[in-house]
Write a protein that binds this DNA or RNA. Structure first.
Lengths: 170, 170
DNA sequence: GTGCTATCTTGTCAACGGCAAGATTGGGTC
DNA sequence: GACCCAATCTTGCCGTTGACAAGATAGCAC
């Protein structure tokens, strides 16, 4: 192992997302991440500043990913809703952090930019602001409830579609 | 100050809810709560076992409160949705904890009972299971997004109503 | 090869959660 | 009223953590 890790930042955010997905944001330990990456306990601080910095990086990555996912889903509001839910289920570590201001540096420039990118991607799909808010609310609510176990079933998409359809109707 | 506090359990849950509302679940310190209550740092452990036990008590209180709030709102699905959102905004500390399994003792008997009470209160309002899920999703999603700052405005209820109406239509 | 800067390490500190063992209290029992 | 007992709270301790400071190392431009 060389003195320089080479790609510590990327390794840390990836490991952080996994850890958050498994044990929640509170169960995240910077020292553990450092051990997993094979670096000293103080190495992360250089890249991220503090714990909130790591989670801010994860959230930023999440918003960027979400924006790309939404764009890929096309113009259909229902398809976008399904994509939103699938994103949350596929990236629970990112999702758990993205909307929790108490964990993040909310005024981070990169974060804000990524937030706006996904907001814009969503706003472009709905006919008006109210419809966009409604679509966002259902998709976000369903995803949250599903991840918390409050709503469950054999298949996420199958469970989500009838719910999303109630708002996505033209 | 006497040796016995007298109502430590209640004092702790109340202080915990406030602290979570202000700084999030991660910013909660059992020792700080103990200091606020004027007891030693190990006193909480007797009542709650551990940190998750405190948050489980807060979540249980939240679900009980939510069930009562929903019942009070009457039979109208829209009114119930508004009540749900208002509950989240009025009790952000409780709400932040209720749906995060990673913070709780998810199999706690009292918690499960309170969960089911609020689930039942909600299920009684909708014509079928799908409608109930949809209503729950919008209300929950809007509340979450509002609390995170993703959706904002001068008045919560005014912002929530048009969104909730899209799903509550008969 | 020399200096510069980003990256990483070592060492340290206060705070925290959790555990064990003991002190105090109030209520029930005789 | 004296005694006992269970509930409640305290003191003391340990390992872990996040954060900070100061120094070591490496890659890179020139």
């Amino acid at each position: 192992m060389s003195y320089h890790h080479g790609d510590l930042r990327r390794a840390m955010t990836a490991a952080a997302a996994t850890a958050v997905a498994e044990r929640g944001p509170a169960g995240l330990s910077l020292r553990e991440l450092a051990r997993l990456a094979g670096v000293s306990h103080a190495a992360p601080a250089h890249h991220f500043g503090d714990k909130a910095g790591v989670l801010t990086a994860v959230a930023t990555e999440g918003f960027t990913l979400l924006a790309a996912t939404l764009k890929e889903a096309g113009d259909d509001l229902l398809a976008a809703g399904v994509a939103y839910v699938r994103f949350a289920v596929d990236h629970p570590g990112h999702f758990a952090v993205m909307f929790d201001r108490s964990l993040l540096h909310a005024d981070d420039a990169d974060l804000r930019e990524a937030e706006q990118a996904s907001s814009a991607a969503l706003a472009g799909l709905a006919p008006d602001a109210s419809a966009a808010r409604a679509a966002w609310s259902v998709a976000h609510g369903f995803a949250s409830l599903w991840l918390s176990g409050a709503i469950s079933g054999p298949d996420v998409v199958a469970a989500a579609e009838p719910v999303l359809r109630r708002v996505a109707l033209p």
